[in-house]
Amino acid sequence: MASMAGPDHLFNLRNHFYLGAYQAAINNSEIPNLSQEDIVERDCLVHRAYIALGSYQLVISEIDEAAATPLQAVKLLAMYLSSPENKESTISSLREWLADPTVGNNAIIRLIAGTIFMHEEDYNEALKHTHSGGTMDLHALNVQIFIKMHRSDFAEKQLRVMQQIDEDHTLTQLASAWLNLAVGGSKIQEAYLIFQDFSEKYPMTSLILNGKAVCCMHMGNFEEAETLLLEALNKDAKDPETLANLVVCSLHVGKSSSRYLNQLKLSHPEHVLVKRAASAEDNFERALQSFA
């Protein structure tokens, strides 16, 4: 149960960011009368939004040496994502930061560390920095890590912590939708309602539409999912998740998926679906050989 203090200036900004309205987050970031902490948080959110939009170079060039520690961490993330070839050095500087007792405890640095190690699929290392939580972001990241590890039991514990802090927080709602989707069954419906609530409360984003579409797919309603995804495609024709889900959806409704797949391959060759498809092909050949 959250006790209520003064007004929360960054509320809208955060919500935009969490719900994938990155440009809206950036556009509405000029908020007067912010405290010093709020300004740092605001800048972090804005730059994370830029990263989410793929503007890595902008983030790297805008954050200079003088910027606050959390911002440096955000810059690190941008560097990691922008040049996979140099990720070794990025990770090693990240480890340096983390080892530094004066800054290693900073929530943003830990969040970035969690994110990067998650990309590295080193969940152990990721959790080492994030498991203790402290911010809603960290808890939400933990939920996601546990979902990725197929440990919904642990994810649920994290979620319960979030619910105790603020059940109506956007991240709490989102995380509970993720978990609901991960455990499946009747929970899918609850996930759908959460996304539905978002779509009623906030402007539609392709994240929300994708969320709804994924729920529909899991409920076996591929036609509706397709409609939602096409709507999302209208909003953002290059959104990798929209394309990926459209591939899946098209397969199920018996339509050709090749155009979406090619589009995805061209724009996001690193996407899980593309990788999975490629590895499946290898897998097939291998299985064929073992058979011959």
């Binding site: 998650m118 069954g185 994708n210 990926a244 996407h271 899980v272």
Partner: peptide, 25 residues
């Protein structure tokens, strides 16, 4: 194989979560 999973963008900038789609919901 491709049609067996959907893709959920969870936390911003973190890896996407593939979710197994089940039949007969």
């Amino acid at each position: 194989f491709s049609g067996s999973h959907s893709y959920l963008r969870a936390f911003s900038s973190s890896p996407v979560v593939p979710l197994a789609i089940e039949r007969g919901w």
